[in-house]
Amino acid sequence: MISIQNLFFRYGHKNILQDINLQINKCDFWAIFGANGTGKTTLLKLMAKQLEGYSGTILLNDKKLNDYKQKEIASIIGYMPQKILFSMPYTVREFLEISMYSNTHINKETNAYQETLQLFKLQKFENNLIYQLSGGELQRLLLASVYIQETEIICLDEPLNFLDPAFTQLTMSILDTLYFEKQKTIVMVMQHWQSLYFSKIFSQVKVLMLKDNKIYFSGAIKEALPMFEDYFEVKLNKIKDGNTQYLL
């Protein structure tokens, strides 16, 4: 679906990304890790055409990313930016309606809207103003606004930030639904791999680790786990539960 070849990105004189090569296939779940400033958000933005000015090639369904109009992109890739603050008094309902902008094949009054409300447990907030929601509720609404675009690919930039354990678990179970039932391809930037333990996808996750603006590792999570201590430069405790080994 997304194919990235020899990708470089500079901001001023600073190299943000160097020689990135990545192949994202249908129904993949990618988790992108990296210390602050290693370019993981930039990479996510570039593949979702939220940022321009790179060199190299990014192909989306074998077509150059630059040949897509923004609205076409938004009908294939749902991109969720990091937490945003809103100042306009839209209701949750209006917000979701607005988010259907690129989705041309649904009728606004039909189930897509109701289904989204239910899936994200937002029914009781339907008429609330968006800036009255708590951090966790807003994050869920943002995710819902991506879902309602009905795209094949979903790109999420640290969707678990600021969430308490209960909300983290809820979000991960929603991701499970998107992955297993809705067959979505998901790319997610995150800080703490521990959240992945909340998910049934865990064993199928593919991991991309960035270090010093380059790819440090890319591959299956099983191969990635042993490298975490070196990569994150932390000492990890290991817990064994049956056949599964947890790193905490």
Partner: peptide, 21 residues
């Protein structure tokens, strides 16, 4: 008017929903 709705929620948001900001 739809583009205005989206832009009023921030350009980053509008871009992610497909507006030629």
């Amino acid at each position: 008017r739809q583009e205005l709705d989206l832009l009023s929620l921030g350009e980053e948001f509008a871009l992610s929903k497909g507006v030629e900001v």
